[in-house]
Design a protein around this nucleic acid. Structure first.
Length: 407
DNA sequence: TCTGGGGTCCTAGGACCC
DNA sequence: TCTGGGGTCCTAGGACCC
């Protein structure tokens, strides 16, 4: 095998949920469509009184009332300023005539499996980054294809050319398998690949090599770095840094002073495009949770019965999730969000991992007793952490019991 | 008429043990 | 009487991501 440079791809599905919905409702193509909210705005069939024609009736954003947010929007809706995570009430002000569709995760997961399988058939080293994006290590694929390269050839240039061809094949394979478009970024590492995939959305294919850093990456705002969120961006702005080039020019020692050793060092490396994280093909879950925001804020005393019912339901759903996926956990935690949006958590570690709804409910109930409940509550959540596989747990018990009889 | 739901990782501080 | 340092486990909160 020739010694090819490391080539990482980041593949991001374009407006994923919205695009899946357009496969189902092609008549909505070209219109502003927003996905989000509950399930009460399901499209319904109706008959046109004039023509007798059967057609679907879709909910409009202006008719929405509630606390939901937009999960995705088509590019036509984004043109009105609607973004994901925006409250639907606010989105309705910007685009009252936009179509509103409920989220259907089962359907999106189906398409997620399809596109990931299509990619793995070509390039098997894939890291899952949620339902609609993945990292792919193309290095072995490139190396295999350049195996016959003559010595002395420009391997570096050929590798990037080859990677671009593979990326084109990946886009076509995803399209064939799902009917959906994606954007791919190619770079020497995950950090740059992630930024690259966003540079030419939708349906993009962008290569960012190290020598493109100053021209393609440095002019961008710091917020484009995956790991710089609203808080850090605001703090950097207060310090006079808004672009990645300004961040790259900052003294590492000064960044460490401002942001601590770990984050400060990382910021400096990120601005210089340095990142050696591997593409991780397998990972185990750390925690599972269920939470719900109420339609109206609930009071611990006045709404006690309803609150208790919802609390138990969350525990039952969570236990079902754990059992279905064959996990159990020792750390039981609750989360509350109050009417003023302040969030508190309480946790309790129990002796043995559990997936039993009653055990979870009891431990969670004990956590709840440690919270001051004088304010009204808008969200309640339950989480189980410190997970182990249920089948391993049986093995662990057996080993533990066997150990008791040793010596 | 503000602000979902499901996650990961990090930090700081306290308890406890050696 | 005063005074150790390291390691592990745990909790609570927060930043960030999709």
């Amino acid at each position: 095998m020739p010694d090819v440079p490391r080539v990482i791809a980041h593949l991001d599905m374009d407006a994923f949920y919205a695009s899946v919905e357009l496969l189902r409702y092609p008549e909505l193509r070209g219109l502003p469509v927003v996905i989000g909210g509950g399930s009460r705005h399901q499209p319904a069939w109706e008959t046109d009184p004039a023509t007798g024609e059967r057609r679907r009736r879709f909910a409009r954003l202006r008719d929405y009332a509630g606390r939901g947010v937009a999960t995705t929007a088509t590019y036509e809706a984004r043109a009105f300023g609607v973004n994901s995570a925006m409250g639907l009430m606010k989105a309705a002000q910007l685009a009252p005539d936009a179509i509103l569709l409920p989220v259907d995760f089962d359907e999106y997961r189906k398409y997620s499996r399809l596109f990931k399988a299509a990619v793995r058939a070509i390039a098997p080293v894939v890291e899952d980054r949620g339902i609609d994006e993945i990292y792919i290590d193309l290095t072995p694929v490139v190396a295999a294809r350049l195996a016959d390269e003559e010595p002395g050839a420009d391997i570096e240039a050929d590798a990037w050319w080859c990677a671009r061809e593979i990326a084109q094949e990946l886009k076509q394979a995803v399209r064939d398998a799902t009917g959906l478009k994606c954007s791919i970024g190619l770079a020497p590492n995950k950090l740059l690949a992630k930024i690259a995939s966003e540079l030419d959305k939708p349906d993009g294919l962008t290569v960012v090599a190290m020598h493109d850093l100053a021209t393609r990456i440095w002019p961008l705002p710091v917020r484009k770095i995956h790991g710089v969120g609203p808080k850090s961006a605001a703090k950097l702005a207060r310090l006079g840094i808004t672009t990645i080039s300004e961040l790259a020019a900052a003294e590492p020692d000064w960044l460490i002073e401002q942001f601590g050793a770990s984050y400060g060092t990382w910021l400096h490396d990120a601005a210089h495009g340095r990142d050696d994280r591997p593409v991780v093909t397998h990972s185990e879950p750390v925690s599972m949770s269920r939470e719900t925001t109420f339609e109206r804020d609930l009071h611990a005393v006045r709404d006690r019965g309803l609150l208790s019912k919802i609390f138990t339901e969350l525990c039952v759903e969570l236990a079902d999730d754990l059992r279905r996926k064959r996990y159990a956990g020792r750390n039981i935690a609750i989360k509350l969000r109050f009417e003023d949006f302040r969030t508190v958590t309480r946790a309790k570690t129990i002796a043995e991992p559990t997936d039993d709804p009653r055990v979870i409910r009891r431990a969670a109930g004990e956590c709840l007793k440690r919270v001051d409940l004088s304010r009204r509550i808008r969200l309640l959540g339950v989480r189980v952490g410190a997970l182990v596989r249920s089948d391993e747990r049986a093995g662990e018990r057996a080993r533990h019991e066997a150990a008791l009889f040793e010596d």
